[in-house]
Design a protein around this nucleic acid. Structure first.
Length: 568
RNA sequence: UGUCCCAUGGUGUAAUUGGCAACACGUCUGAUUUUGGUUCAGAAGAGUCCAGGUUCGAGCCCUGGUGGGACAACCA
């Protein structure tokens, strides 16, 4: 229990209000000093970066306090759920680097217990079967400012309720014919306390337990009890559940009524969900993007899903670090994607090997370099990590360089190639532009002619003149073609989903994906799916899962910071 | 004409529980650099939504405003 047990607790871990709440509980020795959290998704879709925040929060809380974190599927609604999702969710949580406590848990494993508790409430006169339609019940609910009215079935006898509830369970009624409701207070200022539904009838087989049940507990009657069954101490959820908290506690009080005081009593704590600019986070909108073919699927690299980020080249470390930097509070705000991008750059800067790849190639011919000659030049794999060593790169008379590394009429601050200008081909020689060929009709540059200075070879050079411009290049003869998918933000509006008179689809960035054929250095032929590289001076890229040695495919994770284009 | 929650540089979070506001991202300089990357040095930018109150002292406590958000699914 001694919280000061931590040796060298990393100073970097930010404190937040949940830590303070837990510290308070610990100080009062609540739950015997235990901390057990849980991540409780409903298996009805793919996880996104918002879930990742919650996952990181719950698991890091467990870590910090020497406790655990459960993974529990809140599978109380068979019409929306599928095993496909329970699989992908587990994969994503593991990929993020977390291990849940014991076996995966399922709400559906607790249905018997939940049923018993419902019976207990009926017996205590705290629940009743209502025969009214959904519309009728909704109408009687009142509004936030006006009290509701009581159901005519509210005062049925315990015996009748017991009988009806059992027959609901047996399948004697059609969906919608009857529901079980808690008897609380139709005049409560909290809408959720106005006799909320506990059970509804759903005749549809469940993805996991089949047709065992035809009545299913509602979220409110399930979640707190699930937490209680598992011995969860701190039930962390997002702000919109705040108004459910009184009900969460009320149900717990009811099932505990007459029972000995439990050693663990769970407590709900809410925090603000994650919002990111330039994207959408709602499941509905994400689904729309997939269904309308605006993206290629849930794992499209432009999607804010965990699988999309993974395919885009984001690392688990970068996402965890992001979650940490984002912090936890009760105030809702919008995080700048620039923060996410800086997290992946920071990680990849340390890890990714630098390679030469020309994304928009134009030929450069070195007129005084012997035809047919090939020279191997030695280049560093990662200047940030000497242990990564170096490799040999073939250099020859003709190389590809980036089209925008040449300008016919360049401003003085342009440190690149132009008539009469000298630049260094990184790792090789300095070259000076002597001529260029332009297509008379299109104005497009078709070739650049240079001479090289043999005295300037990298490493061995005795030449001391300063050459500011350094270009990446790939030998024409040795270049390998690769499909490169240049991904950019999916939306061109900061807040695509919060515009009054416009749909989020109105703000789709038409340039969110540009596919180009790049010329990459020969070593990349062996690149395997998910391998990550820095295309020197261009950005970070990863090998797509569909890539093969015959057809290389790279995804742009994020561009390098570019203070030059900003200047323009 | 309800209840609850929230309010700190452009953005997101801190502030040892009352001692003249810190960190990260972003922005801007300069240096270094065989990546206009990285790294390093530095700068600008809030006086904590407003008005009162308590206090020697308030971003932290109290009152009242203002602004924003949540709540009326047989969803979670």
């Amino acid at each position: 229990m001694s919280k000061d047990n931590h040796e060298n607790a990393p100073e970097t871990v930010k404190t937040n209000f949940i830590h303070q709440e837990i510290d308070k509980d610990l100080a009062e020795n609540k739950n015997g000093g235990a901390v057990l959290t849980r991540f409780p998704p409903e298996p009805n879709g793919y996880l996104h970066i918002g879930h990742a925040k919650s996952i990181c929060l719950n698991f890091s809380l467990a870590q910090k306090y020497g406790g655990g974190c459960n993974l529990r599927f809140d599978d109380t609604n068979p019409v929306k759920e599928d095993v496909e999702y329970v699989d992908s969710i587990q994969e994503d949580v593991k990929w993020l680097g977390f291990n849940w406590e014991g076996e995966v848990k399922f709400a559906s494993d607790y249905f018997d217990q939940l049923y018993e508790w419902a019976v207990k409430l009926i017996k205590n006169g705290k629940a009743y079967v209502d025969d009214q339609s959904a519309e009728k019940i909704a109408a009687q609910k009142g509004t936030p400012t006006e009290p509701g009215t009581e159901s005519p079935f509210r005062n049925r006898s315990v015996e009748e309720n017991l009988d009806l509830f059992e027959r609901m369970k047996k399948g004697e009624f059609a969906a919608g014919e009857k529901v079980l409701r808690a008897k609380i207070d139709m005049a409560s200022s909290n809408m959720h306390m106005r006799d909320p539904l506990m059970y509804r009838i759903i005749h549809q087989s469940h993805h996991r337990i089949g047709d065992k049940w035809c009545i299913y507990p509602m979220y409110d009657f399930a979640h707190g009890q699930e937490d209680f069954i598992e011995g969860i101490t701190h039930s962390i959820c997002t702000l919109e559940f705040e108004v459910h908290r009184p009900l969460y506690n009320w149900f717990l009080d009811q099932i505990l009524d007459g029972e000995p005081v439990p050693e663990r009593r769970t407590r709900q704590i809410e925090f603000a969900r994650l919002n990111l600019n330039y994207t959408v986070m709602s499941k509905r909108k994400l689904l729309e993007l997939v269904q309308k073919g605006i993206v290629a699927g849930w794992d499209d690299p432009r999607m804010p899903t965990v699988s999309g980020l993974r395919r885009r080249g984001y690392t688990p470390e970068s996402i965890r670090n992001f979650a940490d930097k984002v912090g936890v509070a009760r105030r809702d705000g919008v995080i700048d994607v620039a923060l996410l991008e800086s997290c992946i750059r920071e990680d990849l800067n340390k890890k990714a090997s630098r390679v030469n790849a020309v994304v928009d190639p134009v030929k450069l011919i070195i007129t005084n370099y012997p035809e047919g000659q090939v020279e191997m030049v030695d280049v560093i794999n990662n200047p940030e990590d000497e242990s990564k060593g170096s490799r040999q790169l073939p250099f020859s008379r003709e190389v590809y360089i980036e089209r925008d590394d040449f300008m016919e009429d360049a401003p003085k601050k342009f440190f690149r190639l132009g008539p009469g200008r000298e630049v260094r081909l990184k790792g090789a020689y300095a070259v000076t532009c002597t001529d260029f060929k332009k297509n008379a009709e299109t104005g497009e540059i078709e070739g650049i002619y240079c001479t090289y200075d043999p005295e300037t070879k990298s490493g061995a050079t005795t030449v001391t003149r300063k050459i500011k411009g350094i270009l990446h290049w790939v030998s024409v003869e040795h270049a390998v073609d690769a499909e490169v998918r240049m991904y950019d933000r999916l939306y061109n509006h900061e807040a695509p989903s919060s515009q009054k008179d416009a749909d989020h689809l109105d703000f789709i960035n038409p340039d969110s994906l540009k596919i180009v054929t790049a010329k990459v250095e020969p070593s990349l032929k062996d690149a395997k799916p998910l391998d990550q590289f820095q295309f020197q001076r261009v950005g970070y890229f990863c090998v797509d899962k569909d890539s093969t040695s015959d057809k290389l495919i790279f995804n742009r994770t994020v561009a390098l910071k570019d203070s030059w284009s900003k200047k323009k």
